[in-house]
Simulated assay, not measured.
Amino acid sequence: MTPFRPGDDGYEAFWEEAERHVLAGVAREVADMLREQAGLPDDDEDDPLGTLTATTQSTGTPREPDDPAARRLLPDASRDDDAVAAEFRHLTQTDLAAAKVRGLERFAALLEGAPSDAPFTEDPDDDDRAVVLVTRENAREFAAALTDVRLVVAQRLGLETDDDVETLHDEVLAGTDPDDDEREIDPTVRRYWGGIFVAAGFAQESLVGAMLDDHRARTSGG
């Protein structure tokens, strides 16, 4: 995986097939979890995200997520006032959840090379890599999807602090397992999901950096 760089048609990076396949699969899993936790309807051909049905049936308070990972994506608006939190969830959760599901599904489709999104072009120097091209119009949504994937993986791995994240980064980059016996997650599982967390973070940070560089160049006339 290479960093994203601004190009004529958007932001480009070379990703290996395994990287595209794994991150697309995780994004779809997160979208499915979020759909279920938020009470969005299942897919249908006329309304694949269920947004129309969810909007017309959103009377009463939406389902409050009981999965801690979903609550990271759909947090309470207030920790001190349950009434305020419930009202805010009633007014915003359906739209917010549907938008996140939409972004995650589009992110996965792009990585899978869906023709409705930016196509892949093969890297002539590596048969296993292809260009992931994110249009400027879709860049914010793509970056948000990567952030949502990272938040869910972080919750599953029990990452609560910056120190936790730094420790995981060091383990992944060094290819080592934790030395202590306090981890509740199998080291092999932690290594696998840790790699996904680090890869998604690298992609998200480089994409946001490319967007900022692009914005500075355009506003300065460069």
Results as ranks from 00 to 15, higher is better:
residue 40 L to T: 03
residue 41 P to V: 00
residue 64 E to C: 03
residue 63 R to T: 08
residue 70 A to W: 00
residue 38 A to D: 05
residue 73 L to I: 04
residue 68 P to G: 10
residue 61 T to W: 06
residue 68 P to K: 10
residue 48 P to S: 10
residue 47 D to V: 08
residue 42 D to S: 14
residue 46 D to F: 11
residue 61 T to Y: 07
residue 36 E to Q: 13
residue 42 D to F: 06
residue 45 E to I: 10
residue 41 P to W: 01
residue 33 M to D: 04
residue 73 L to W: 03
residue 66 D to P: 01
residue 31 A to L: 03
residue 36 E to D: 14
residue 39 G to P: 00
residue 49 L to D: 05
residue 72 R to W: 06
residue 39 G to C: 09
residue 35 R to M: 04
residue 42 D to A: 15
residue 47 D to W: 12
residue 44 D to I: 00
residue 36 E to W: 01
residue 44 D to P: 04
residue 61 T to D: 10
residue 43 D to K: 13
residue 54 A to H: 03
residue 40 L to W: 02
residue 50 G to H: 05
residue 71 R to V: 02
residue 52 L to F: 15
residue 39 G to F: 06
residue 50 G to E: 09
residue 64 E to F: 00
residue 34 L to I: 10
residue 51 T to I: 15
residue 41 P to Q: 01
residue 64 E to S: 06
residue 55 T to D: 11
residue 57 Q to A: 13
residue 71 R to L: 08
residue 46 D to S: 12
residue 41 P to E: 03
residue 49 L to Y: 12
residue 41 P to L: 00
residue 57 Q to V: 03
residue 40 L to P: 04
residue 64 E to V: 07
residue 54 A to N: 08
residue 64 E to N: 08
residue 72 R to A: 05
residue 63 R to M: 11
residue 38 A to T: 01
residue 35 R to I: 01
residue 37 Q to S: 11
residue 61 T to P: 07
residue 43 D to E: 15
residue 50 G to D: 05
residue 50 G to I: 03
residue 59 T to V: 12
residue 68 P to T: 12
residue 42 D to H: 12
residue 59 T to Y: 14
residue 70 A to C: 09
residue 33 M to A: 13
residue 45 E to N: 09
residue 36 E to N: 03
residue 63 R to H: 08
residue 44 D to G: 04
residue 72 R to G: 01
residue 56 T to F: 15
residue 33 M to C: 11
residue 51 T to H: 11
residue 73 L to A: 02
residue 55 T to Q: 13
residue 59 T to H: 14
residue 31 A to Y: 02
residue 55 T to E: 14
residue 71 R to D: 06
residue 39 G to H: 09
residue 37 Q to E: 15
residue 32 D to M: 01
residue 62 P to T: 05
residue 44 D to L: 06
residue 57 Q to Y: 07
residue 39 G to Y: 09
residue 32 D to S: 10
residue 56 T to Q: 13
residue 46 D to T: 11
residue 40 L to G: 05
residue 73 L to Y: 01
residue 51 T to F: 11
residue 37 Q to T: 05
residue 48 P to E: 07
residue 44 D to Q: 14
residue 62 P to L: 00
residue 55 T to V: 14
residue 53 T to K: 13
residue 42 D to R: 14
residue 50 G to K: 06
residue 50 G to M: 06
residue 45 E to A: 15
residue 33 M to E: 09
residue 67 D to E: 14
residue 73 L to T: 00
residue 57 Q to S: 14
residue 31 A to D: 03
residue 67 D to T: 10
residue 45 E to F: 13
residue 56 T to N: 12
residue 40 L to N: 01
residue 47 D to Y: 12
residue 33 M to W: 07
residue 45 E to Q: 12
residue 38 A to C: 07
residue 49 L to N: 07
residue 63 R to S: 07
residue 41 P to T: 00
residue 45 E to W: 13
residue 39 G to V: 05
residue 58 S to T: 08
residue 31 A to S: 08
residue 68 P to C: 07
residue 46 D to Y: 11
residue 32 D to E: 15
residue 38 A to G: 02
residue 63 R to I: 05
residue 37 Q to F: 00
residue 71 R to C: 00
